[in-house]
Every structure is written in C-alpha cells, then in structure tokens.
Design a binder for these strands. Structure first.
Lengths: 184, 184
DNA sequence: ACCCGTTGTGCAACTAGTTGCATAGCGAGC
DNA sequence: GCTCGCTATGCAACTAGTTGCACAACGGGT
C-alpha cells in the first residue's frame, strides 16, 4: 500500500500530470518505488475520488487532455500520518540470490554471464547516484529536508556498493574451477 | 516467475510434502524467496501437471492426506536451464526508503520508532545468519556446492549489515534536532 | 465411542503490479 | 485541410502474491 503515498510525495514536491509523474518516477522516486504509467493513472483516479488530491484548472476533462493534480489538505494529512505508521518489513524476494542457490544444486553453467550483467547494471546505477549526489548535495550545504533526502540517496549508494561487492565475490566462486580434491 | 524454481530447488535438496516445504521456506530458502503455504500448494499442483515433479507412493490422493513430491528429470532440466537464463533486475520497491523520502517533505514525526523497530529486526536477522554460518560453514571446509551456498549466505549477512549501518545513519538524522540556523 | 487439537491440503476472493492496446488532442510538414 | 507522429490518458485482461476460511485425516485423552 505504498504507491498512493509515493504519488502524494511526488505531487507535494510539485503538482504534475500523470505523464509527468511517470517520468519523475523513472528518475528519482522510482529508484525506491517504481511504477508504470498505468498504475499511476489508476491510482490518481482513486486518490481523486477519495478526496486526497484534485485536478487543477482545465474545465472539460476529456480523454487525450492533460490533467494536472495537486494535493489537498486531506492528502497531506494522510501522508503525514503514514510516515509515522508502522509496517512490517515485507519478506525478501531476490531472484539472483535464489538463482545462485539453485546453482549450488544443479551447477553454475551459464550463470557467470548473468552475474556480469548484473554487476554492470549496478555499477551504472551507482555512477548515476554518485552523480546526483555531486549535483544535489555538495558538502555542508544541506537544508533540513535535504539532509533527509541525502540519507535516502546514501542508502541507494551503499546498497549498490553492497551488490557490487557481493557480485564480485560470487563471480570469484562461480568463475573459478572447483578446488582440486584434497588427497585422502 | 521464480517461485516454481525455488520449489524445484527445495525439492531437489530433499523430496517433501507441501507443509514441509512451507516450513523450509520459513527457514532457509524463504530468506531469499518467501512464499505462503497457499502459493506453494498451488504451484505444486501446476508443477505436477506440467510433468516437472510427481507425487510419491501413496495410492489414493485424498484431501487431508500427506503427499510427498519429487523432482522428475524434466524438472531438473528446467531448473538447470533457468540458472543460466538472463532476467532483467526487477525494479526496486522499498517502503522504508520511500517513507523517509516522504518524511523529507512532511516531517519525520513518529518515524524514529519505526526506524528503531527495523533496526532491531535486522539485527535479529543478522544474528540468525551468523549463527547459521557458524553451524554450517566452519572455516576451510566447504565442499563444492557448499561454497556457493556460503556465498549466498554471505550475501544475506552483508545485506543485513548494510541495513543496520544505514538505519543507524538515518536515526542520527531523524533523532537529532534540526541544525541551528546559521547566522545570516 | 466420541470429542478435540494438530497436521495437512486446498478453494475462493481479494490486492498489487504488468502488458498490450485503444483512442483523443495537438502541432508540424506538405 | 490532411496525414503523421508525438503527447497524454485510459480500458481490459493477465500474473503473482495475500488473506481468510473450509475440511479431511489422525492420534490421543476420557
């Protein structure tokens, strides 16, 4: 149940249309909570119906017509409330760790390429985050809200570093031939 | 599409009934790919129908009767194939990072407790993994398949360490009062 | 003989996310 | 003034995962 809150957050930062939101999800918010345009349009409809946001200006709502939304006080209240709510951590589901576990049973054939691919991807992602950090958070300049945003970004950065480190270890095990059998 | 492969892996390690699988998912495999008993029973049905696994022995299949499954050659082949297949990394969805981002906009009220709770949980998980490591992977004793399994476990361990480190940082930002306004 | 808790399997209905496609409006090029 | 491509919104059908509950078998205990 986080998508509506992701959208409220994005809309508070800047009122937007569905497509704009989609694009912003592809960059910033989507790094931590991705969503397709479909999900976003549907959720915008629900949020509007629930009275948490409203469409701005443009009189005739028509199909191909751009619609901007802004957050209503009720929406802000809901988001504020949600921030303090407690929610159990969702169970982990990581396909790559699972795959490696399967490889422990049926052999690692073909796995190296996949690990390489992921390593590349995470390196790319890390570079992107570090770039954002350089541009948005130069040293010693964080305003109150920015300090929090900076922590979030550091989370992303450290997560990518974790993956890079782990994938490197995993590749060492997978790439390497099995150890010579010990004399018995 | 990883659940069937998780089940195949588990069944290759040891033929089991649905409930047994459920319990094993709660311990080992489920650390990386969790599943409820519902999902498991449904998937077992599909896998059997697809001819990848089969029920052992017990003649009359009846409702409240225990059914053990084992993997057929086709199932092993499918799993072997899957290990080498490439799959795009699934988009990240992390509620906690999102929540902190929302807090940057509407304030961090009530968030500290939640971060504490998560910190506790991750510390517990880390302790559990470290315990497993001690019991299952004593130094210098890894058989071929075990080396891979050990890498997977180390992934879990390092991931928990990442969260613990990050949550500690986040708590420092959230707990601390906002910095005194600089003189202007 | 019967009840009762535990073990084990399963259906049904729901929520969230994905994929593929339809369709309206809008401006530029010819 | 018509067509084409881009922007923008949206429906419908599907897949995966969750939740709540039903019900059969089995092994005591009384």
């Amino acid at each position: 149940m986080s998508l509506p809150h992701a959208i409220l957050t994005a809309l508070l930062e800047k009122p937007s249309s569905g497509l704009e939101l989609t694009r912003r999800f592809d960059r910033s918010i989507g790094y931590f909570w991705s969503a397709t345009h479909q999900q976003i349009y549907r959720e915008l409809g629900k949020l509007e119906e629930a009275g948490l946001i409203r469409a701005l200006s443009s009189a005739q709502p028509a199909r191909g017509r751009r619609k901007e939304y802004e957050v209503l006080p009720a929406g802000r209240a809901e988001l504020t409330d949600w921030v303090g709510r407690s929610e159990d951590p969702k169970p982990v589901r990581d396909a790559l760790l699972l795959r490696l576990r399967a490889a422990a049973v049926v052999g690692t054939e073909g796995l190296e390429a996949e690990l390489d691919r992921h390593l590349d991807w995470h390196r790319g992602q890390l570079a992107e985050y570090e770039d954002i950090e350089k541009r948005h958070f130069p040293p010693e300049r964080d305003a109150p809200g920015d300090r929090i945003r900076h922590v979030v970004l550091r989370g992303g950065i450290e997560l990518e570093r974790f993956w890079i480190g782990w994938l490197t270890q995993a590749l060492a095990e997978v790439g390497e031939p099995p150890p010579a059998p010990r004399p018995r």
